[in-house]
C-alpha cells in the first residue's frame, strides 16, 4: 500500500500557520472534461525533478484537500513528457497551503501566473485569472465530494490549462497564486534537470570511515 505524506504549512486568514501531516492515498486530476487518477507514488514534494523526456509539459494545478477544518488550497505542477499521457506525470506538490472556508468567496479573486526560465529561449510568463477556471465546487462533486467536503485521503489536482507550458530541462518554473482578497500569495518553485545531469564536475569515489577503533570507555 502506497501513500503520500502531505506535510503542508497551512496559513489561515489570520496568517497563523499550522503543520498537519495528512495521509493522501488518492490523487485525482479533475477538469471539465476528464477525471484521472494519478498513481500516488508519482506524487512528491520535491523542489527539483529529473526528467527523461524532452520537451516536457508543465501543467500547474491547484490542489484541494479536505482535512476537517476547512479545505486546504495548495499548488502543484504536473510534469510529463510532451505527448505522454497525463497519468504518467509526476506531481510536485508545494508544502505551502491556505486554509479556506467558503472556497467560492475566494476563488473569483485569484490571480495565477507561471514564469518559466530555461537555458534556451527567453523567459516566458503566462497569466490566468481564476474566473476562467471551472468552479471548484463542480470539480469537487465530479470527484466524489460534496459542497466543499471531500472524503479523507483524497487530493484533487485541478489543472490551470491556460498556464501549461512546454520546456526543455534545465528549466526553472515559478507558479504563483495570489489571493487579492486577503493579500497573500502561494509561490512554488520547481527546478527541472535532465536525468543525465551531473552536478559533480568530477565524481569522487565514496570513502569508508571507521570511527573509534579502540574500545571507547564511555559511549554516549
Amino acid at each position: 500500500m502506497t501513500t503520500f505524506l502531505y506535510k503542508p504549512h497551512v496559513m489561515n486568514a489570520r496568517k497563523e500557520v499550522t503543520t498537519p501531516d495528512i495521509i493522501i492515498d488518492q490523487l485525482i486530476i479533475v477538469d471539465e472534461s476528464a477525471i484521472e487518477r494519478l498513481p500516488i507514488q508519482r506524487v512528491n514534494s520535491h523542489e527539483s525533478l529529473q526528467s527523461a523526456f524532452d520537451p516536457i509539459k508543465l501543467t500547474p494545478v491547484y490542489l484541494l484537500t479536505a482535512v476537517g477544518g476547512g479545505v486546504l488550497f495548495g499548488s502543484g505542477v504536473l510534469v510529463c513528457g510532451v505527448g505522454q499521457a497525463r497519468v504518467t506525470a509526476d506531481c510536485a506538490v508545494s508544502r505551502q497551503a491556505w486554509r479556506l472556508r467558503h472556497l467560492a468567496d475566494h476563488f473569483d479573486k485569484l490571480r495565477l501566473a507561471v514564469q518559466l526560465e530555461q537555458s534556451t529561449g527567453r523567459p516566458q510568463r503566462v497569466e490566468q485569472h481564476s474566473a476562467s477556471l471551472p468552479e471548484p465546487k463542480e470539480l469537487l462533486q465530479r470527484a466524489g465530494g460534496h459542497d466543499e467536503d471531500l472524503p479523507r485521503g483524497l487530493m484533487l489536482a485541478c489543472p490551470c490549462s491556460d498556464l501549461t507550458v512546454d520546456a526543455s530541462a534545465p528549466a526553472s518554473c515559478e507558479f504563483l497564486v495570489e489571493d487579492t482578497r486577503l493579500d497573500r500569495r502561494l509561490k512554488q518553485e520547481l527546478h527541472l534537470v535532465p536525468a543525465d545531469f551531473d552536478s559533480w564536475t568530477e565524481r569522487p569515489l565514496p570513502r569508508y570511515t571507521v570511527g573509534p577503533v579502540d574500545e571507547v570507555e564511555h559511549y554516549i
Binding site: 499550522t18 503543520t19 498537519p20 501531516d21 495528512i22 482535512v67 476537517g68 477544518g69 479523507r152
Partner: peptide, 12 residues
Amino acid sequence: LNAGTECWFINT
C-alpha cells in the same frame, strides 16, 4: 479508522 484528520491543538 476514521480518526480526526486534523487537530487544532497538536495539528495532527
